[in-house]
Every structure is written in structure tokens, then in C-alpha cells.
Design a protein around this nucleic acid. Structure first.
Length: 895
RNA sequence: GGGUGGUUAGCUCAGCUGGUUCAGAGCACCUGCCUUACAAGCAGGGGGUCACUGGUUCGAAUCCAGUACCACCCACCA
């Protein structure tokens, strides 16, 4: 499908993306244009695609980031870099395990425990093989030019190897440890999760005030019978091992050192004093439950309190809770409150709103539970990353994210990396066993990838999904092997990601990359906003407010979707998306399509159009004004666009290209080169137009790859290997900017606009041709304008056209002044004097106030003294223009 | 409790290093047009005290401080 306009006869008026998108994607793939090479001698440009979950379906966030990454990749490829965009997927531990478990239940009515670990993991792999490619296929629909030959999966052999390797390294460095600590436990997924995976949600609940009886001795000593504590979690009462008050609290001085009786169990616990307790909060007395609350755990440590665990891993209460054993924690809460009330110990109940932690995955309420887990000491890693940041080894765009990054790094806590799941990277740790097969706790574990000794068993846990993700920028390139890919493409150029995973992923990659490879894994971090619904809510399954990118692509075309997402992607701002916004992109694609149809009518399919002139400045001078203007506009835009893109202002760049295509090229340039009725367009003119158009297509290609490739291929015969995707990005050439041409052309544009305005305001019937008299400010302009009369003919309905430096204003004419040039249009019989007077009056008022402000400024000594010369000159020129225009308008009004 | 972002046209939003030719885009609206590329279009037009209050400056939508509201992130007060 390499050649030009074979379907010339029947090009539909409306662009239909469906007919071409898949074909071009296949073509690019067949031509191997996405593949990056290590032997080209070009400078590398690398982006690692944030790996979507294998369970996932493409959502708008992916589409946005895909559009951004692809635009950057295609741009750099065209700019002569060896561009590698490496795709892949994430095994997504919990999410995937859940999906397969659900399926297992549905199809075989079994749990994972029914079939056993090995069989279950096999099933997950099967599932992954079958469904894991869905999301990457969906990505292709968007037109992403990533190197599929290098696609990776976080549980690939190589990546798994990197994971084990890093675990062992960190362990050897003393940065990994195992310990029995309170962790965030998800009773639904039955695993520990990290602090980052816990969300805090506001929840309406109660604060129960409960009287704890004092033991006899304390009561008789103090003369007090009860101490009242306040709690939001009465179900943990059986696990209390102390009551605590503030050491300085007057009310409780006599109780410190005494004992209270824990309701429901009758256990006697000490009353202790600890600074942590706030005197003015609640009753000033706190029940201490070290096994089920982080703060209480710390208090317990300080006072050597026993730790009584009453909650099982599934959220039910265990035998240590006494009669509540076997009840779910929330049922137990009700039961205990009921019992307390019966015993008369419930003092009062208040409504209370608090923040509760829920698992970001299952949304289950997190239970702080003591358990054996593996941790990474993060401080040393964070310090290195912060140093690298200060040294400018990587930069955030927009820069404010650096502060957020630092805030987190400075308060970093150790990372729980073990998960009680089956799907994931096994922890490379082995235990000796006793004769009955159970773990021999008297002997140390051994860290090793392979089983070190017959009979040893491997740690049953797997690693947090992010423990493989944080290696992504280099594990995907073959690290820890010193591969050619790694040497050539690492460190990567830019990471494109949403800020929602700054802590989960971006920060950890920086820490990991710097620690393991000695280099920041990317130079730039471009943080995009988050795509939300039109009310500003996150898109989620539960709200059912998602907009499916595939549906949108189907409806509007991939280019339209990409256009829209990028144009809305302003520096770090969230995007409130409404499906109708894709019409913008669709309309623009259609505009391009029709510009092509127009040119196509004048194409000579057999011609091989020459284009040497565009590179020959001498030939340049022979060019018509509108070509010199168009070239100037194009090259000015290229300069702006290059600058915008280098700072990740993709929206600004795209908007400028949009305006160049639509406003300049379509509305002016193409209109001006339209041939006369019935006459064919001159071949030269067609050639020039096509060459401009090709440049525009190049500029647009990174953003709208399909339609630009389609049109580009149809514009000329191309050899099989020629493609827009591998064409050269047009460089900015200052010599192509002709200020004189721009100035004159702009004047003509203004004159034409003004004449159109007069016609419209004066309600001149459309068919009626008018006389146009222009009295330019200078004889030179008069000469120039007269030369360009054909331009006026093209754009206006004129009977006669007079350009005369000394023209008199005919009676009964409508008039205007632009840039000192006067326009008269005799409209005998048609002119509505009141209307005209009003129009001119309005213009005069505008000019007067403008002139006034400029004069005020220019009469200000301080302005003259302080403002840069250029600005002052500018103001003077403005003043002069305004004064001239005003004068003429006033004369006209007087007439 | 700490922090970040937002507040600009009826709606959704751009507007970088301050300079009345930057107050702008798309949609919506009004007036003409099915002009042989495009009605998903063309031409013309209306519409904004740039949240508020101060400050810095010759000059502020833009920089600073404070206020109000909205959104988000972080945080161990039961």
C-alpha cells in the first residue's frame, strides 16, 4: 500500500478512520519501523512503558499516557534518534490471583486451596497466556509505535532473575530483614500490604465510652470505682493489656500504678502513665491493645506489656477472645457492646467520624496484625535518591512534583515486601526442616535462588508486585547481565506517568535504579494529570463513569482520540473528559482529509513532484507572496513547537500546529491557490502546496500518526520502504522566515477581513459585487497591494478594485481604516447611515481609549526610564498607528 | 493537623521568562452562506472587573501575602 492516489476517483468526503488504521499499523509492523537497533550509531532515546496489569483493560489513563509516549517516541525517531519504546505487562500479584480465583470458583466451584499451590499457579499462567495480551492488543489500536520485539513481562525468566538477584544483594547489604511486626493486614486477600496500599476513608461510626472497673486495691486506695476509657474499637477489648493515662493528669494520679479489670475477660491489667496519651481527648484514659493498634504496640514496647492477639487472619476472633471466639470482628463488636451495656459498663455512645484504613485493592478494612514479614530498609536508598535529585541527575516536569517526592522520601518508612499470596516472585529464602517436615526454627534461613540442600523448603511468601516493577527500567534491558541493550539504552530518557503512582512506583524506581545501577533510571519524569469524568470524579468501575478508549477509537478514530487527549493535557492538570470532546479531533482529522481531497484533485499521479526549490534560497525569492508567507509561518511554528516539545508542553505544540494547518494553510493558503473556474491548477502551484502540506503532515505525525501516514503516502508515489514514520522531522530554518512577506501578507489579510466585515455589517447581499477602493498609507504599499490584486479577487466578491494613494472617499461609502490604510466601499442606496455611523463610532471609541492608555504610558517618565527600549519603541509605534487610524476614522465620520 | 493544585466567556479549559496587537481556543449563541476540499464546513459577530483583599512594580490574569470556596495527597489522637 505504498503508492499514491490509486483511489482518486472515489475519495469519500468524510474521513473514515476505520478503513485505514489497522492497515497502517500492520504496515509499520511489517516494515519493522518500531524496532530499535543498537548498531545504528544514532543517539538513543528510550522510554519504558509503565507496564499495565495483565488483568487490565485499556482505560483513558493508558490512552493518555500512550498518546504522550508515542508522540515523544515518534518525534525522536523522526529527529534521528534511535528511539526505543519498550512495552510490557505487570503480573499484578493480588489482582491477577483474585481474577483467577474467581474464575476457578465459577467454572469448577473450587478454591485455590482445593487444587493446591502448584496447580493454581499453573492455572494463573494459563490464564495469563490466554488473556494477558488483551491489553497490549488494545494498545495497538491507539497506534503506539513501541518495540514489540522487546516486550517484557514482570515474571519473565530474565526479570525474575533480576528480582532474585536484587533480593540477595539487598540482603547481603543488610538492607533486607525479617521480623514480627504489626503490619497492615487485609482479611479478604489474606495478605500483608504496604502502607502505600492502604487508603484512608472517612467513616461514620461511634465512640464508645466504657467504664473499666478498678481492682479492689486500687479502688480502696483511691476511692474511685471505675476508670472510663473511650474507644472506637470495642471488639479489641479482650486484647487489652493496660490502661494508660498521661503522667501529669491530675485526675488519675492516684490510679497510676494500680490496676483495672478488663471487661469481658476479667483480666487485671496495669494502669500506666505514658506521654502519648492526650489529657484533653476523650476521657483522658486510653485502653492499650498492643496486638491491634500501632500506637498501642509502641506503648506496649515502652512498658514491656504482654501482647495478646485475638484476631485471626480472616478477621474473626480467636480463642484468646474468650466467648467471642469464631465471631467476625464486626459481629463481635456488636456483641461486646451489648454485653457491656448489660453489665452497666457502657457510659455513653457518641457519633464519631474517623479515618479508617482500607485496602486499595479489596476495599476491606485493614486490620493491624502482628506477623512475620520481610522488610526493606528504605532510608539508605532514599538518601541516595535525594542526593541524586539535588545533583540534578533527573528532573520532574512540572517541577513541583520534586517537592512531593522529597516530602515522601524524607518520611520514608520500611517497605513490607512479603505477600501471603501464591502468584508472584517466590522469596529466595530456604529453611531447614524437622523430621515431620515443619520448619526448624532453631536454625538460620539460607538466602539462595536454588535449593541449597536436599530437604530444605522455600519461604512460602511471594514478593510485592512493586518489587519487580521498581527494576523495570533496567531489568527489561537484561540487567543484571551487561547486555548490549542495557549498555546502549540505559539510563532511559523520560518516564511518563500519572502522579497517582509517584510513591508506589516512580520514587521506588529512582531509589532502585540509583542503588542497583548507580544511575538514575531516567533523566526526565513527565507527570501527567489524571483523566477524570466530566464532573471531576475519578473514573472507576463502581461509579460506572468510565469512558472506554476503545469505544471512542471506534467512534471517532484513534487520531481523534489522541489529538483530544494531548490537547487537553496541560502541565500537570487533571483532565475532565467528556466524550463529546473527541469531536474536536474528529473534525480536525476531517479537515485534514479534505485539504488532501482538494490537493488530490490537482495531483498528477504520474508526476514525481520536484522539490528542490524548497531548499534553494535563490529560487526562494521567485516564490509568490503567499508561499513565502506560508513558509515563514511554518518555520516560525517549527521553532515554537520544538521549544514546547523539549519542555513537554505537548498541548501547546499541538495547538500551534492545529492553528497552522486550519487557520493558515486551509483558510488562507489553500483558498488563495484555488484555480479559476474550470482551469486546472498550475503544476508549480500544486507542487508548492504539496510540499507545504508534507511539512505539516510531518509536524502532525507524532500526534496523529494514521491519517498523516495515509495522506502522505497518497500525495506521491513512495517506494516500499518510504514512510512518514521514518521521515525526517523538519528542522527550523531561520532563512525561511521572510518578515517582509509576513508583514505585507498580514496587511492584506487585515484588509480582506475588514472588507468582509463591512459587507456583513452593511448587509450587502451575497451575490452583489462591490467596488473596493483602498487608499494605502504610503505609495510603496499602494504599489505592493496593486501587485497582489489577485489575492483580493480570490477572497472577495468585487466588481472593481482600486488602489490609489490619493484616492478620494466617494460619497455614500462604508469605510474602515486598518494599519493606516483606508478602505472605501461605495454603497449607494444600500448604505444604512445610522448603522455605519454606529459602526464607525464604536471603532473610534475603541481607538480613543486605546490611544489614551498608550499615551498615558508614554508620558510616564518612569516607564520611559525603566522599560526596555524595545517595549518603549513598541508602544510608540502602537501610538502612531492608533493616532493615524483614529484621525482617518474621524474624518470619515465627519463626512 | 500538614501539604499541593484550582478559581479566566454560558460550558470545558489554554495562557511559560510580568509589557493593552494575549485577554485566547473548542463547544454553545447570533447573522449570512449547501461558494465546484470540507455543513464534522465557510464568512462575520456578540460575550469576560481574569474568585476576593492588599502588596511589589513605570506596568500584574501573570510575582508576593492573606481570605473564601472547590478538588486532591499525606498524617499514629483513642
Amino acid at each position: 500500500m505504498s503508492s499514491g492516489n490509486q483511489q482518486q476517483k472515489e475519495i469519500p468526503k468524510q474521513y473514515d478512520p476505520k478503513t485505514i488504521e489497522d492497515q497502517w499499523y500492520s504496515y509499520w509492523m511489517e516494515q519493522d519501523h518500531f524496532r530499535a537497533r543498537t548498531d545504528s550509531g544514532k543517539e538513543p532515546f528510550t522510554i519504558m512503558m509503565p507496564p499495565p496489569n495483565v488483568t487490565g483493560a485499556l482505560h483513558m489513563g493508558h490512552a493518555l499516557q500512550g498518546a504522550v509516549q508515542d508522540a515523544l517516541t515518534r518525534l525522536k525517531r523522526m529527529q534521528g534518534y534511535e528511539a526505543l519504546w519498550l512495552p510490557g505487562t505487570d503480573h499484578a500479584g493480588i489482582a491477577t490471583q483474585n481474577v483467577v480465583e474467581r474464575e476457578l470458583r465459577k467454572t469448577e466451584n473450587k478454591t485455590r486451596h482445593d487444587i493446591g499451590r502448584e496447580a493454581f499457579v499453573d492455572k494463573v499462567w494459563e490464564w495469563k497466556e490466554k488473556y494477558g495480551e488483551i491489553i497490549t492488543r488494545q494498545y495497538s489500536k491507539l497506534g503506539v509505535s513501541c518495540d514489540w520485539s522487546r516486550e517484557r513481562f514482570t515474571m519473565d525468566e530474565g526479570l525474575s532473575n533480576a528480582v532474585q538477584e536484587t533480593f540477595i544483594r539487598l540482603h547481603n547489604e543488610g538492607l533486607i530483614y525479617k521480623g514480627n511486626y504489626l503490619v497492615n493486614w487485609c482479611p479478604v486477600d489474606m495478605t500483608a500490604i504496604s502502607d502505600e496500599e492502604v487508603e484512608h476513608v472517612e467513616s461514620k461510626g461511634y465512640m464508645w465510652h466504657i467504664a473499666y472497673p478498678l481492682d479492689e486495691e486500687t479502688a480502696s486506695r483511691s476511692g474511685i470505682k471505675h476508670i472510663t476509657i473511650a474507644t472506637t474499637r470495642p471488639e479489641t477489648i479482650p486484647a487489652d493489656t493496660a490502661v494508660s493515662v498521661h503522667p501529669q493528669d491530675e485526675r488519675y494520679q492516684s490510679l497510676i500504678g494500680g490496676h483495672a479489670i478488663v471487661p469481658t475477660t476479667g483480666r487485671k491489667v496495669p494502669i500506666i502513665a505514658d506521654d502519648y496519651v492526650k489529657m484533653d481527648y476523650g476521657s483522658g484514659a486510653l485502653k492499650v491493645t498492643p496486638a491491634h493498634d500501632e500506637n498501642d504496640f509502641e506503648i506496649g514496647q515502652r512498658h514491656s506489656l504482654p501482647v495478646i492477639n485475638i484476631i485471626n487472619k480472616d478477621g474473626t476472633l480467636n480463642d484468646a477472645s474468650g466467648k467471642y471466639s469464631g465471631m467476625d470482628r464486626f459481629d463481635a463488636r456488636e456483641a461486646i457492646v451489648r454485653d457491656l451495656e448489660e453489665e452497666g459498663l457502657l457510659v455513653r455512645v457518641e457519633d464519631y467520624v474517623n479515618q479508617i484504613g482500607v485496602s486499595s485493592r479489596s476495599k476491606a478494612i485493614i486490620e493491624p496484625l502482628l506477623s512475620d514479614q520481610w522488610f526493606v530498609k528504605m532510608k539508605p536508598l532514599a538518601e541516595k535518591a535525594m542526593r541524586a535529585s539535588r545533583d540534578g541527575e533527573f528532573r520532574f516536569y512540572p517541577p513541583r512534583w520534586e517537592n512531593e517526592f522529597f516530602r515522601w522520601m524524607e518520611n520514608i518508612r520500611d517497605w513490607v515486601i512479603s505477600r501471603q499470596l501464591w502468584w508472584g516472585h517466590r522469596i529466595p529464602v530456604w529453611y531447614y526442616t524437622l523430621e515431620d517436615g515443619s520448619i526448624d526454627r532453631s536454625r538460620d534461613y539460607v538466602v539462595s535462588i536454588a535449593q541449597p540442600e536436599e530437604g530444605m523448603v522455600q519461604d512460602p511468601d511471594v514478593l510485592d508486585t512493586w518489587f519487580s516493577s521498581w527494576l523495570w527500567p533496567f531489568s527489561t534491558l537484561g540487567w543484571p547481565e551487561k547486555t548490549r541493550d542495557f549498555e546502549y539504552f540505559y539510563p532511559t530518557s523520560v518516564l511518563v506517568s500519572g502522579y497517582d503512582i509517584l510513591f508506589f512506583w516512580v520514587s521506588r524506581m529512582l531509589m532502585g535504579g540509583i542503588h542497583f545501577t548507580g544511575q538514575a533510571p531516567f533523566h526526565d519524569v513527565f507527570m501527567t494529570g489524571i483523566v477524570k469524568d466530566k464532573l471531576g470524579r475519578k473514573m472507576s468501575k463502581s461509579l460506572n463513569n468510565g469512558i472506554d478508549p476503545l469505544e471512542m477509537i471506534d467512534q471517532y478514530g484513534a487520531d481523534a482520540v489522541r489529538y483530544c487527549l494531548i490537547i487537553l493535557c496541560a502541565q500537570g492538570q487533571d483532565i475532565k473528559l467528556d466524550p463529546t470532546k473527541f469531536e474536536m479531533g474528529r473534525n480536525f482529522a476531517n479537515k485534514l482529509w479534505n485539504a488532501f481531497r482538494f490537493l488530490n484533485m490537482h495531483l498528477d499521479p504520474d508526476a514525481g513532484y520536484a522539490h528542490e526549490w524548497s531548499h534553494d534560497p535563490r529560487a526562494e525569492k521567485e516564490l509568490p507572496l503567499h508561499d513565502r508567507w506560508m513558509l515563514s509561518r511554518i518555520h516560525q511554528t517549527i521553532a515554537d513547537v520544538d521549544d514546547d516539545l523539549s519542555r513537554y508542553r505537548l498541548n501547546e505544540a499541538l495547538l500551534k500546529i492545529y492553528s497552522l494547518v486550519w487557520d493558515d494553510f486551509c483558510d488562507w493558503y489553500l483558498e488563495l491557490i484555488k484555480p479559476e473556474y474550470g482551469t486546472p491548477m498550475g503544476r508549480k502551484a500544486a507542487e508548492r502546496a504539496i510540499i507545504h502540506f508534507e511539512t505539516l503532515l510531518k509536524l502532525l505525525h507524532p500526534f496523529m500518526p494514521f491519517i498523516t501516514e495515509e495522506i502522505w503516502q497518497r500525495l506521491r508515489f513512495r517506494s516500499a520502504s518510504e514512510a512518514l514514520i521514518v521521515s525526517t522531522w523538519p528542522g527550523h530554518n531561520e532563512a525561511m522566515i521572510h518578515t517582509d512577506a509576513v508583514e505585507l501578507f498580514t496587511t492584506i489579510q487585515q484588509l480582506i477581513s475588514s472588507i468582509r466585515n463591512i459587507r456583513s455589517e452593511m448587509r450587502v447581499p451575497d451575490q452583489l459585487e462591490v467596488d473596493v477602493i483602498i487608499r494605502p498609507a504610503t505609495p510603496e504599499t499602494a504599489k505592493a497591494l496593486a501587485t497582489h490584486r489577485p489575492m483580493f479577487d480570490k477572497m472577495l466578491r468585487m466588481d472593481k478594485f482600486t488602489v490609489d494613494h490619493s484616492a478620494e472617499r466617494p460619497a455614500a461609502s462604508a469605510s474602515d481604516v486598518v494599519g493606516g490604510h483606508q478602505i472605501f466601499i461605495p454603497l449607494t442606496g444600500l448604505i444604512d447611515f445610522d448603522r455605519e455611523k454606529e459602526r464607525i463610532g464604536k471603532e473610534i471609541t475603541r481607538l480613543e481609549s486605546f490611544l489614551q492608555s498608550v499615551e498615558k504610558k508614554l508620558s510616564n517618565r518612569k516607564f520611559l526610564d525603566n522599560a526596555p527600549e524595545q517595549v518603549v519603541q513598541n508602544e510608540k509605534k502602537k501610538k502612531e498607528d492608533a493616532r493615524l487610524n483614529l484621525q482617518k476614522m474621524q474624518t470619515i465620520l465627519a463626512d
